[in-house]
């Protein structure tokens, strides 16, 4: 078993873990989410592995549904950010000096406000809700990836094989499709994948702070923020399991992305 096989193995396991909530969520009926006054405040047991809350709702079902929701919101927002990053990075590197300076300045501008403050501001401005959260998360995660893509293109453009192609009279299109894209694709895909964990964590954070989704939606952030009121009574399971699920979800994404990166990055392929 050499390292690359292991890397591939980790990536597959992580991917399967990510799919779990998506598959499980529709299978768990909404019946479990209904109020069961006979089964309130129950500690974890075989019938309720994550316990129940003060309304007798099954915490396992709530957590899985919350994860599926977080996954959806995170994916949408991260994809939006990836798209913005790709477009701006490409524009900065190809549209000449003025565009480059402006976009670089824009990147600095977005990085100069604390991320969470910016998230709160945008979520507040858009009026909160699922839409607000997606816009806020989607609009704030692109700068680092845009910077990476810009640098990557600039480096590729000045690399020898591109210069040689240019001297040989190859067209811009030929160079872009034969030289630039094959190098950029893996970087872009992995870079976008690496945005997911941040996007999901930030989605949970602003929801937790009360900026995001309505209390009726079982988002992890809302579950955790509700749990705060009951912690002093010793109901630790209300906070412990949903948070742990979120942690595993985010970690899986990280493992998936970094292992894929190790496979496609030529600089690390000999490790």
């Amino acid at each position: 078993m050499n390292l690359r096989k292991k890397t591939l193995g980790y990536a597959i396991v992580a991917f399967v873990l990510l799919l779990l909530p998506v598959v499980l969520s529709p299978l768990l009926g909404s019946e479990q989410l209904a109020t069961h006054l006979t089964a309130r405040n129950e500690a974890p047991s075989w019938s309720h592995p994550f316990g129940t809350d003060w309304l007798g709702r099954d915490m396992f079902t709530r957590s899985i549904k919350g994860l599926a929701l977080s996954l959806g919101v995170g994916l949408t927002a991260a994809l939006a950010s990836g798209l913005i990053a790709g477009t701006l990075g490409l524009m900065a590197a190809t549209l000449g000096k003025a565009a480059d300076r402006f976009i670089s300045w824009l990147i600095d501008l977005f990085l100069s406000v604390p991320h969470l403050v910016l998230l709160l501001l945008i979520a507040f401005v858009t009026g909160g809700g699922v839409k607000g959260v997606i816009i806020a998360v989607g609009l704030t995660h692109w700068p680092s990836l845009a910077r990476l893509i810009r640098a990557e293109i600039l480096q590729l453009k000045s690399s020898e094989f591109v210069l040689v192609s240019r001297h040989m009279g190859r067209s811009r299109w030929w160079i872009a499709t034969r030289h630039l894209l094959p190098h950029l694709w893996p970087q872009f895909i992995v870079g976008t994948l690496l945005l997911f964990p941040h996007a999901i964590l930030h989605e949970a954070a602003i929801t937790f702070l009360g900026m995001g989704l309505s209390p009726h939606q079982p988002a992890i952030g809302i579950i955790l923020s509700e749990s705060m009121r009951y912690l002093s009574t010793g109901m630790w399971w209300l906070a412990f399991f949903p948070g742990l699920c979120l942690l595993i979800l985010v970690r899986s994404f990280d493992v998936l992305a970094t292992n894929l990166y190790a496979l496609v990055d030529p600089n690390r392929s000999q490790e």
């Binding site: 050499n2 690359r4 096989k5 591939l8 392929s269 000999q270």
Partner: peptide
Amino acid sequence: TQYDRGLRQ
């Protein structure tokens, strides 16, 4: 010891 193409050493 180096990695060859793909997963072989």
